[in-house]
């Protein structure tokens, strides 16, 4: 018993989370969530647009952040001696920047820049860029650790074949990174899907379908942040249910990503 009992603490917390968000009385609302319109006053609780916005923003952020993370992880290893250590510390620090601060930067710097192209600049693209900037450090650190795990024997073999650095990266390093890169991408995706504040601040929040770079979108998390404070009755149940769906989705993606990152 003593061997396993410490597991009760995290398991209990997880259980508390699910119990808090799962209300059996709210289940009859569940089918309504699949609808397209979100008009709580008229008892329409469709979150299809919000879900698609969440996937669009998180997916877009992933597309931007993965190459950035890969480049920065490679730079950490290619920079001779102390440069790499410094870069790694800077990556850690960049990952600690609070999301409201990124949101503020998005409003104060990024949106004005984008609004020259298409005022007011807020929307899908702005949210995607801000999210990418928030998630690349997590992914870079995971890739960095994976680079560290490439066995010396493999590198030595490549060196003794007389490969150039470019060839070694393409033929040895990249193939060894395949699983870790997928895993890092999934970890980044879960973080992007769960992120609230920065997205809320720069995405416009009207709740359009994510059809263009300047669509004023609203993610599932932003919808929670905007409406939960005053929601009552069925409206509240619908919001809690969408929160539960978010936890289940991110947890499943996270487990998949974690398996890929830790099992080599």
């Amino acid at each position: 018993m003593r061997r396993q009992s410490p597991l009760l603490v995290p398991a209990g917390l997880l259980l508390a989370l699910v119990v808090a968000l799962f209300d059996p009385h709210a289940l009859p609302i569940a089918p309504a969530l699949a609808g397209e319109r979100w008009l709580p006053a008229r008892s329409l609780f469709g979150i299809a647009r919000f879900v698609s916005a969440t996937f669009a923003v998180a997916g877009g952020a992933l597309v931007l952040a993965l190459p950035a993370a890969l480049a920065s992880a490679l730079a950490t290893h290619l920079w001779p001696r102390h440069g790499g250590v410094t870069l790694r510390r800077l990556t850690l620090v960049a990952g600690a920047i609070p999301s409201v601060v990124w949101g503020f930067w998005g409003l104060a710097a990024l949106a004005p820049l984008l609004s020259r192209w298409h005022p007011p600049g807020q929307g899908l693209l702005a949210a995607t860029i801000v999210l990418a900037l928030m998630i690349w450090p997590t992914m870079a650190l995971a890739l960095d650790a994976a680079l560290e795990r490439i066995p010396d024997s493999r590198r030595l073999a490549a060196l003794s074949l007389g490969m150039t650095l470019g060839q070694r990266l393409r033929l040895v390093v990249m193939p060894s990174l395949r699983h870790a890169a997928t895993g890092a991408a999934l970890l980044g995706l879960t973080r992007a899907m769960g992120e609230t504040m920065a997205v809320l601040m720069v995405s416009g929040n009207v709740g359009d379908w994510p059809t263009g770079p300047f669509a004023s979108i609203r993610t599932v998390t932003a919808n929670l942040a905007l409406e939960f404070a005053y929601a009552q009755g069925a409206h509240r149940d619908a919001l809690l249910l969408s929160g539960l769906m978010l936890i289940v989705t991110t947890t499943l993606l996270f487990w998949w990503g974690r398996r890929l990152v830790t099992n080599q």
């Binding site: 989370l17 808090a20 968000l21 769960g194 998390t221 978010l246 936890i247």
Partner: peptide, 10 residues
Amino acid sequence: AVPSICWGLA
């Protein structure tokens, strides 16, 4: 990995 807004809801 639980999104922080879900902690807020709980």
